[in-house]
Simulated assay, not measured.
Amino acid sequence: MNSRPESDIMKNWGPAREPLLSIVCPTYNHEHFVAQTLDSFLAQQTDFPFEVVINDDCSTDGTAAIVADYARRYPGIIRPQFQSENQYQQGNHPCPGLFRLSRGKYIAFCEGDDYWTDPFKLQKQVDFLEHHLDYVITYHDAVAFNEHGMQGVQLQGKGQRDATSLELMQGRPISTLTTCFRNVLHEMPRELAGAPLTDLVWWALLGAHGKGKYLGDIAPAAYRVHSGGVFSMRSDKKKLQMTLHTYGALANYYFRIGNVPLYEHCQVQLFGLSISAISPLKKLLALALVARNVSVNLLRRATSSTARG
């Protein structure tokens, strides 16, 4: 349990008390983890005010009591939200509402079973965004771990570099618990409201506002893999289905707003994912069908061109 008093956290904030940044933290049945998560928030050393907007989605363990105790001890920082019915099970993701509740110019995100390891993380991310208006989001590394130990960096290669606006709009993966972004996600388009991979949807929407910055000098955050994890413990088949559903939702959204290149990008992703989801024999049948459709389309274009000639 964190012993750092609230006055010590606020001592460098200056006279302003309106938060510049809001930490958004959804939690559910994280009794064994949420104290470590909150402690990692309260360990942050900043020269600006921040708040913690934490939502307990009607946990059935002791999570709500732990959150309430922290809110009592840190009333100027922690703003708890307690649900009387589980909203996630009803298809209502808590984050759009939490984003709207957030008073900060920036939002940092971390679920109640993960935690941060760098006490200067928020200061570095906010400093960058304050001085680079063409960027909308910053992020860094995260290390996955379970009860047996570390499993390695969550995203490597492409994940460890900056992202263009286009790459964000295409739904490029980012370690969600590492992000700090501008508070511009106030409404969710109807096509994207039910997308399972909500983080890919957020990055896509943020891409319309700017670029992404990878900050390699921030110590990796800790991504916990456990049996209660909403995504980490899903089967590979289920994860694939969730990704298909999400790209389908993005395709519908881009079709409605008339962005043909992004619509076609999502369709290509859907095609590749669909092929990988079926058996080898079905792959051959699907590729044969694609070849047939391409041949028919080419023939129609040739016939139309000849007729016009």
Rank of each mutant, 00 (worst) to 15 (best):
K124E: 04
D39C: 07
A71N: 07
A193N: 05
C25K: 13
G62V: 05
R17K: 15
P119Q: 05
P94S: 00
I23L: 05
T138M: 05
V34Y: 02
S227E: 15
R72A: 10
R172H: 10
F48E: 10
S40W: 10
G14W: 00
N2Y: 13
F109T: 07
L177D: 03
L215N: 04
P26Y: 00
D199T: 08
D57T: 06
R73I: 07
D141Y: 03
I54T: 07
S7P: 07
F120H: 10
D114S: 13
L185A: 01
Y223G: 06
H32G: 02
D118T: 08
S22E: 09
I218K: 06
Y253T: 08
D141R: 09
R190A: 14
I257W: 11
I54A: 08
E167K: 10
L122S: 06
Y223F: 14
L289V: 09
P49E: 00
T176V: 03
Q269H: 01
A193K: 05
N293G: 08
G149W: 04
G207N: 01
D114T: 11
D8W: 12
D162C: 05
D114N: 09
Q36R: 04
L250I: 08
V52I: 03
Y263G: 08
F255Y: 06
Q125S: 10
Y135V: 12
T37V: 12
F82G: 11
S304P: 08
R224I: 11
A16F: 12
L281P: 02
G309N: 14
G62K: 03
D162H: 14
D162T: 14
G159K: 04
Q154P: 03
V143L: 12
L177M: 06
L155C: 11
Y254L: 04
D114W: 06
Q123E: 15
L185K: 00
